[in-house]
């Protein structure tokens, strides 16, 4: 390797490179060693050649971008924790899933619940259910963001893993996040209208009249202290 480098150094020209005079254009900063020994034998570059080269480079860049995206996708699949229950199921990941942030390994149950809940988005009407519930992708996205923000916040602040909720369609296109871990429970409803705040209610079944929580989420804040505290109650022990 060193020997080869020495050979290159032997033909070092520059920065006052005489070979550039044969090209009809002046170099702009090319301080490294190179040789123009073969240049006189090469055919002169034409505008047509340059255009062809530009097209080829563009094609190569596109191919490279596609390959890179494929590799990144494979890597993200490989890194995501998988629950055994999903084995054999069809891969339902789409653009929505790829836009979700990567959660710590400890919150893999939350990731799985979110992934599984994608089935509730714009679900096809069931002919046996005239009054089927459904929700929009936008409402689902907001609901899962609220879930992620709160689960991450509880994890980062007190290193407690929040249980995965039941994520299901609610009335009028809304999305419900429902936690139950006896004796505690919490229902958080994210309305279809993004201008309306999410509402929540939870209680302690042993003492429901005096130990309960309820409220509305502030649209300008990612997390709500009331929800955070209640989720810590329902967390994995």
């Amino acid at each position: 390797m060193n020997r080869k480098l020495l050979e290159v150094d032997e033909v070092f020209e520059a920065p006052s490179c005489p070979g550039w005079s044969q090209r009809g254009m002046q170099p702009v900063g090319f301080p490294f060693g190179h040789s123009h020994a073969a240049l006189p034998q090469a055919p002169a570059a034409t505008a047509r050649n340059v255009a062809q080269l530009v097209a080829e480079v563009a094609q190569m860049r596109a191919q490279f971008s596609r390959a890179l995206a494929e590799i990144e996708q494979r890597l993200s699949r490989h890194n995501e924790p998988r629950s055994p229950s999903r084995r054999g199921r069809p891969n339902r990941r789409g653009a929505e899933q790829r836009t979700l942030p990567i959660l710590p390994r400890e919150l893999s149950a939350i990731s799985s619940a979110i992934e599984d809940s994608m089935a509730i988005v714009n679900c096809r009407p069931d002919p046996s259910d005239d009054l089927a519930l459904s929700c929009s992708q936008e409402a689902w996205r907001r609901a899962t963001k609220i879930l992620i923000d709160h689960a991450l916040s509880v994890w980062e602040k007190i290193k407690v893993v929040v249980r995965p909720p039941v994520i299901s369609p609610g009335p009028e296109g809304s999305v419900d996040l429902y936690w139950t871990a006896a004796p505690y429970g919490l229902l958080l409803n994210v309305p279809a209208n993004p201008k309306e705040p999410a509402t929540y209610f939870g209680d302690d079944a042993r003492n429901p009249d005096s130990n309960r929580t309820s409220g509305k989420l502030d649209l300008t804040k990612p997390t709500d202290i009331g929800v955070l505290m209640w989720l810590a109650h329902t967390a994995e022990q």
Partner: peptide, 13 residues
């Protein structure tokens, strides 16, 4: 309806 049952329980909806 079966579509409103998850984990062996009705969903809140």
């Amino acid at each position: 309806h079966k579509n409103e049952i998850q984990g062996g329980a009705p969903i809140p909806g």
